[in-house]
Amino acid sequence: MPKTIEKKKAGEESVVHFTFAGAVAGAKRCLPIAVSGVAIGLVFGVLARQAGLSPVEAWLMSILVFSGAAQFVVIGIWASPVPLAGVVLATLVVGLRHLLMGAALSPWFSKLPKRKAFGSVFFMADENWAMTMGEFQKGKRDAAFLLGGGIVMFVSWSTFTFVGSAAGSFIEDPAKWGLDFAFTAVFIALLVGMWRGKPSLLPWGVAAVVAVLGHEFLPGHWYILLGGLAGSLAGVMLRGR
């Protein structure tokens, strides 16, 4: 075990790049995600309109917040007058998983100039983050991959939020087109690339059990954070012995 750690540390000594070509590569890889995200953006726009937000308000939310999970949850509790405390708390709970995701980026992003690192993380969503981690694990070192992928998703998300909200309720349930499964399929494909055989079994098993239990018995999105924490800690206990 210590050998793999030494190897990883040596790898991290290498230079981290931040190039235009890296951003383009990230954009290309995230394009299919952004395309299937069009339907989700449209649906969000429609729901936001029904909840009482104007098209400009919904658009502003997608631009400034840029978090599908947080926005759907908030629209679910939206009322008049706006329940500010509930909105902020729900956003925080849904966003806590970002803390873990940002920490996972740190071995590479802490080597970048602050402006680039902290500008890029505004665009960190589940999908482009996961793809970026996959790239890093394959030995690639271009951190602009996250930004490029994020910008494509940002443009798709904000544009189609506005279109959905302005155009009204012509969008049907995305589940009818199987699009609800697009993200899951991509996550599964990324997991296949991250599988390291037996050492993955315990942390992934623990994460799955905790996430399913959390999803069934806890409100909101706690299950993502709890599953991620429990699985990672299980991995530390397994390998740190």
Partner: peptide, 9 residues
């Protein structure tokens, strides 16, 4: 361990 655990979750 975080990427795998979060994606599984």
């Amino acid at each position: 361990q975080i990427p795998g655990a979060i994606l599984i979750s």
